[in-house]
Design a protein around this nucleic acid. Structure first.
Length: 141
DNA sequence: GCCAACGTTGGC
DNA sequence: GCCAACGTTGGC
């Protein structure tokens, strides 16, 4: 089971929205690096959810209920159809006991190496086993 | 509100 | 294929 991090602007789609809906299609990703990570996501993988914008913190954990499949929001007949955009389905698993802020990630020896920290614009990124452990430990503090 | 980072586009 | 121009995102 792998760990990932999904970034979202909470005014567009938040963890609260995910909890309300019970399940969500994580679609609309139009960036090759992010797509490649999405492509690698498998059912049962876990994802940290990060709120960008005003919040700037990791708030929860979601679970992949359906691995990568073609993104249905790509318009038929558009040039995007050839680019292989994909999406996954996720459902909420838990809220972190305490949100972990970007500042905390940056201050942490292991977590400052997160792709999210190094490349803030990447919307889907991998999280190593060790990083996941540290992040969960921080949230539990 | 500004600016840095980065991706995309288009001219050559 | 390169690179300048431009647009978007996100942190500060």
């Amino acid at each position: 089971m792998a760990w990932w991090l999904l970034k979202t602007e909470p005014s567009t789609f938040s963890v609260a929205d995910l909890e309300k809906d019970g399940q969500a299609r994580w679609d609309g990703v139009r960036n090759y690096a992010a797509r490649n990570h999405l492509q690698a996501m498998k059912q049962g993988d876990a994802c940290f959810i990060y709120h960008s914008g005003d919040d700037k913190h990791v708030v929860g954990v979601a679970e992949v209920v359906r691995g990568a499949y073609p993104d249905p929001t790509v318009p038929k007949g558009s040039a995007d159809e050839r680019k292989g955009w994909v999406c996954v389905d996720v459902r909420p698993r838990e809220r972190l006991a305490r949100p972990v802020t970007l500042a905390e990630l940056k201050a942490h020896r292991v977590l400052r190496e997160l792709p999210l920290v190094k490349q803030s614009r990447l919307s889907v990124s991998p999280v190593s086993e060790a990083q996941a452990r540290e992040l969960l430990a921080l949230a539990a503090r």
